[in-house]
């Protein structure tokens, strides 16, 4: 069976692992990440978002993750079904859960609320120009920014590879569908977050 490529576990685990396993891992990760969100003051306030704030209530990251996963699942299901009616909902659910893992890992970057403090320090230099720009804060914010970009690329790659696999689509149709799904999922999650809080 030469045609089956050696699976790329990091960027396309959907090719190799069965949906039950992916869903169990994804659900456990979502619960753990919600607790991490509470401990590290992280809010998952959007399908592709993670922001750090001063304090977080324990239930907030759970609701955030629920909204984000629901938004991804709903929009990607609609787009995947349009691309290929044979697409199974269970596969889309697995993708919606697993694609968020990079975002969950990023919560560790706010250890000791460092990201939030840096953000505040840099914000003060904008509102109060007389203040000196703290260089250590700038360097750390560049490092965290780079980590965030890497996590975003990883997450988007997982979503793209997942949609490509489960809908068996290629070319322009897939790219347009994916961009459409990504924007709509983000917009829907933001709207629900806005309506709830």
């Amino acid at each position: 069976m030469n045609k089956i490529k050696k699976s790329n576990l990091l960027f396309n685990p959907f090719e190799r692992f069965r949906e039950q396993r992916l869903i169990i891992v994804g659900l456990i990760a979502a619960v753990v990440a919600s607790l991490l969100g509470y401990f590290f003051n992280g809010r998952f306030d959007g399908a592709l978002d993670l922001h750090f704030t001063h304090t977080v209530e324990i239930w907030e990251p759970f609701i955030d993750n629920l909204i984000a996963i629901f938004s991804l699942f709903l929009i990607f299901s609609i787009v995947a079904k349009i691309l290929n009616p044979k697409t199974r909902f269970v596969d889309i659910f697995a993708i919606s859960l697993i694609a968020r893992l990079p975002l969950y890992l990023l919560t560790f970057s706010n250890f000791g609320n460092i990201q939030y403090e840096i953000g505040q320090a840099l914000f003060l230099t904008v509102t109060e120009p007389a203040r000196n720009i703290p260089m250590d804060a700038v360097i750390l914010s560049v490092i965290f920014g780079a980590l965030s970009i890497l996590a975003a690329i990883w997450m988007i790659t997982l979503l793209y590879n997942g949609l490509k696999l489960v809908s068996n689509s290629k070319g322009v149709k897939l790219i347009v569908g994916f961009i459409f799904a990504l924007i709509l999922a983000e917009a829907l999650s933001k709207l629900i977050v806005y309506l709830i809080y």
Binding site: I4, S7, F14, R16, K86, D91, L165, V166
Partner: peptide, 13 residues
């Protein structure tokens, strides 16, 4: 084949 269902379904398609 130790692969996921969609992978195998795509091969068949």
């Amino acid at each position: 084949l130790d692969r996921s269902y969609p992978t195998v379904r795509n091969l068949l398609d």
